[in-house]
Amino acid sequence: MTILENAAHVLRCFGNDCTDLTVSEVSDRLGLPKASASRLLKTMRETGMLEEIGGTRRHRPGRMMLNIAAAYRYSSSVFGRARAVVHETSQQFGHTGYVSIRDGRSVMAVADFEGTNALRVGSAVGRRLPAEICATGRSLLARLSDDEIARLYGDEPTADRLARDLEPVRKRGYAFVSQQAMPGVDGLAVAVGDPVTGEAVSLCLVYPHNLVSDSERDDMIGTLVEGAGGIAEALGDSLLLHAAGDRAPA
């Protein structure tokens, strides 16, 4: 692999469950000799991608990454709109909300809004989850065709089951997952995209399974779908606009 590919692999390691790395950890994760891992981190420090934490020999993302993250958010036609809808919905119902993106078979929250209820689900910004097990992932995967899903998952045993799970998501326009990504936690998600840029994000609420009634869940679904629908109308997202109106969770 090139040094650029290795640098990208290092950056993908970071998240809320991995805030810093040592040379040894990079060596283990990337399967590199320690000398090569040391040279790689040195180059990443010199270019501003990483910075060393004091004299600990641990490395975290450099401040340059903040500028890159800000540029992504401000350049995205759909992110700002999704962020506003999720923030408002989270405040209305008191449950934690996310805006997430898909990277291959994984999804990752890039913005979150902590719920106001006494019992709520904590933040997961930066944490990667398998797309097929969570509401955000399924809402984004449902925007792909069956052929695209087949290419993404190949001959894996989950591919056929996933194709069946995604069909009702496409028809309803939202995904509902109960206690699959995390025990005791349910998730609701609606994905919306910009047909011009091809980017798509998922608007999601997560909440403790035992604390939400069916009627409150349906209210949250309706609010998320309505908010995402407004974004879809503004951007011309036909994939969401053409979703059927059946909103009863599977």
Rank of each mutant, 00 (worst) to 15 (best):
Q180V: 10
A159E: 14
M108S: 12
T56W: 04
R39Q: 11
R102E: 02
L140N: 00
G222T: 09
N67Q: 15
K42C: 07
A8M: 13
H242K: 12
R12T: 06
R247H: 13
R73D: 13
L166W: 01
L141V: 06
L141H: 03
E199A: 08
C18N: 08
G126T: 12
R39G: 04
A243P: 03
T223Q: 11
V177C: 13
D237Q: 10
R60W: 06
I149G: 02
R138C: 09
L129N: 07
G126I: 15
N67M: 12
G31Y: 04
G236H: 03
K171A: 13
R151V: 07
G193T: 02
F79N: 02
T158Q: 12
Y174Q: 05
G31F: 02
V206S: 04
L30W: 05
R143V: 01
Y72H: 15
D214H: 13
L66I: 09
G122P: 14
P157E: 10
D147R: 15
C134P: 01
V107I: 15
D155S: 12
A37D: 04
L41E: 05
R83T: 08
D28H: 04
D165C: 05
L4M: 08
T56P: 04
R138E: 09
A244S: 15
R102D: 05
A175H: 00
T136V: 13
S38Y: 08
L21V: 10
P61S: 11
I231N: 00
D155T: 10
E25R: 11
E88Q: 14
E167Y: 02
A7V: 00
P33F: 00
E148L: 07
A191C: 02
L235D: 03
L211M: 14
N117D: 09
H242T: 14
G173W: 00
D186Y: 02
T197N: 04
S238M: 13
E51R: 14
A232R: 04
L224F: 10
A175G: 03
E51I: 13
D218C: 11
G55T: 11
L235F: 04
E52T: 12
N210R: 14
L141I: 08
T43F: 05
G187A: 09
I221L: 07
N6E: 14
D17S: 04
G62C: 13
I149M: 05
R143I: 01
V26C: 00
S106V: 05
G236R: 03
C13E: 14
L239Q: 14
E216C: 09
E148Y: 09
D194I: 09
K42R: 12
E132A: 09
F93L: 10
R57M: 14
G184T: 06
L32D: 00
Q179G: 04
C134V: 11
P130H: 09
G126R: 12
A175S: 14
S238R: 15
S75V: 06
G222P: 01
C13A: 10
L119V: 15
P168R: 02
R39H: 10
D155Q: 10
C13K: 08
R217E: 03
V99E: 00
S90N: 11
A243I: 02
S38Q: 10
S100W: 03
L211V: 10
A109F: 07
R161A: 13
G227E: 01
A124H: 09
R170I: 01
